[in-house]
Design a protein around this nucleic acid. Structure first.
Lengths: 148, 148, 148, 148
DNA sequence: TTTT
DNA sequence: TTTT
């Protein structure tokens, strides 16, 4: 019992397809890039403004990795619940860097699809393999506008 | 209406006294450093493990800055609710860096004190200046473990 | 400062159109009937089970009443955030009864539309009057399967 | 996957000791009575007002029943997370009645103690039997204000 | 990069 | 009564 709470709840859209990777010990994890946006009227100018926030999401829970893999794609709207974790790493010039992520793992983690995105095929079975995704263009991987 | 949600809920303890700063346009903001911790039994070794996570919190809401200023101190346990924002900045060597913070601003922001920390005096009036704080005693929350 | 938290978060679908009523002092309130459902596989029989829970929602916040009135209809999927309140009333035979509702009022209340439901017309302006709704059939009002 | 969310988060104090009962099939469940309160200044009179809300909480999760049994008592402050359920029952005069409860069961359920209440002994072992509880002292949480 |  |  720790007397503390660390919870993040997001409703947003995936900016790209989930990225599935394997750890050294053979478990799969999924990385999501989720956009939340809010809009408001500027008090002075009266014009409509919008701000989009991008979130890194890392899924360790086996069942939720399966959901991400089989059901989510670029544009999917999701509800997710996880916890904030800041990870330390060292960049190529030896400087300490920190990256903050929303981690879905263990109790309290949740991932729910809120819409259906057009995907070739669709999946009736939970364990069905995902439809073949087109090879991602390199621009997706090299895009340096993404803030992480 | 944006159809999105960006919410962080934390229950944790302040690692140090709130830091109050003023913006150029004269408004006050408060920075909190909040620790959440979780503990679990390692499946293999059976030993008790603990992990502490540190969160940067920035308060813009005028009323909540006042709460932080007048009622919170190192060691205070709080419940807070805000949103995730990642801010870009440039370090002294000109490299882009990102910092993720929990921002308390506008609707949906909340800050509640969950315990009373010994402070000389206490405050009956919301707007009373904080009592002079005693030098902080050594604490289980060690300043040099805070990663920022 | 109360040191307490009373928060309900729902994502669900409206079971009927919002009901708009006026209080004696001329303010409008909206009542929503929201269904959440969960499904699971029964451990013994292996069959898929589903349970639907119905929630009474009462909206007092002026802006959110407007959202309900102008944008929501039977079938709408919403995210909402409010607080639990149990109201006491006396039934026709003089017995005390209690009704628990999710109340959207003041800080921390939220209501977001997560999908678009087909409605005749649609509304470009926040303040535009809602499309003319067909008169509700009496069966809607008399339905005694609704648990409240 | 249902696309819905049913979540209640409370921080409040127990109005009485947890009540532990056994189901027919031998599992233990715990009932909590939790008070949340909020206070505000009346806009017209300027006087401070307070409203206390009482919540019925039912715990089915085995581990959380153990937490309630061994660590909680009247006056304990807790954080808990569960879901809303309305249960139908028939009163002694044969009238259908409904009772809405916060249910802690399965994924997403949480119960955390936020303070220590004086208890003779305390418990170092999770599974230790609770110390004999002293007769409860008169308290600011008056039993006869609890509406159930 | 998403979405409205 | 909703929805998947």
């Amino acid at each position: 019992m720790s007397g503390s709470l660390n919870k993040v709840c997001l409703i947003g859209n995936l900016g790209k397809d989930p990225e599935i990777r394997s750890t050294q010990d053979g478990r799969e994890i999924a990385n999501l890039t989720v956009a939340t946006s809010e809009s408001w009227k500027d008090k002075n100018s009266g014009e409509r403004k919008e701000r989009t926030e991008w979130h890194r999401v890392v899924i360790f829970s086996e069942g939720l990795v399966k959901v991400a893999k089989n059901w989510l794609a670029k544009g999917s709207k999701v509800y997710l619940e996880g916890q904030l974790q800041t990870r330390k790493w060292t960049d190529q010039s030896g400087v300490d860097r920190y990256s903050t992520e929303v981690v879905l793992q263990g109790y309290g983690a949740a991932l729910t699809m809120l819409n259906k995105v057009d995907r070739d095929g669709g999946h009736e079975e939970d364990d069905a393999p995902p439809a073949q995704r087109p090879q991602q263009p390199p621009s997706e991987l090299l895009d340096d506008e993404i803030p992480f």
